[in-house]
Structure formats: structure tokens, C-alpha cells
Design a protein around this nucleic acid. Sequence first.
DNA 1: GATATGACGTCAT
DNA 2: CATGACGCCATAT
Length: 106
Amino acid sequence: MFNRMLRQVRRIPRGKVATYGDVASAAGFPGSARQVAWALHQSSGLPWHRVVGSGGKILLAGEAGFEQRMRLEGEGVRFHGLRIDMKEHHHSFFPRKRSSRKKKIR
DNA sequence: GATATGACGTCAT
DNA sequence: CATGACGCCATAT
């Protein structure tokens, strides 16, 4: 399960962010936002800083939160006070629509 | 199995 | 915007 969530996290492109709930849903476990947090604790080498709370707020405490914010800003994420511009940086996990590609993608 | 905890989310006050 | 309450679910003890 965590594996599944972590996979979504890896999918988040640089300069974008996603919420715990979004990742959980994308992984197929709506309502299990907490487990996403757990997954991030467990694993490493992931863009954990691209995962924030609902509304784009950083939930981490103290230094960790500070570091996360710094990283995000470094990736081009604009902050609105203590929150992130979700309108700009909210990453939408692509809906899986993979079928006959009639049109040549050029 | 029961209880407590946590990088959560949403709603009501 | 801050708080409190409830719902949710994997781990830890």
C-alpha cells in the first residue's frame, strides 16, 4: 500500500505539490491521508517536500517545516504567507486514459 | 483485542 | 483565522 502511495509521490513534478489526501486518493485509498504521512516517514529518497497539507499548508514542525518551505521555494513554488499557491502548484495526478492513440502525437 | 498516537481532512463554532 | 470535534487507518505498546 505504501508502495503505491510512494509511487504517486514520485510522480509529482518539480515545482508542483500535492496534498496527503490527494496522494492517498490517487493511490487508491481515499481517506487514508495519514498513511501517506507514515509512508513518507518510512521511506526515503522521495520528494517528500512536495507533499503538503490541505490548502497548501505545511504541517511539519519546527526545522523540518522550515526546510520543506525552503526546498519548495527553491523549486519555484510561490508562498502566500504560510500557504502555497495551490491554484498554481496543485499537481493533478493524470487520469489513466491510455487507449488507441488515433492521433499522432506529433 | 483494546488503547493511544500521528507529516491528515472536513465541518461547525 | 484559531479551536474543537469527529472520521479515517496503519503502527506501537
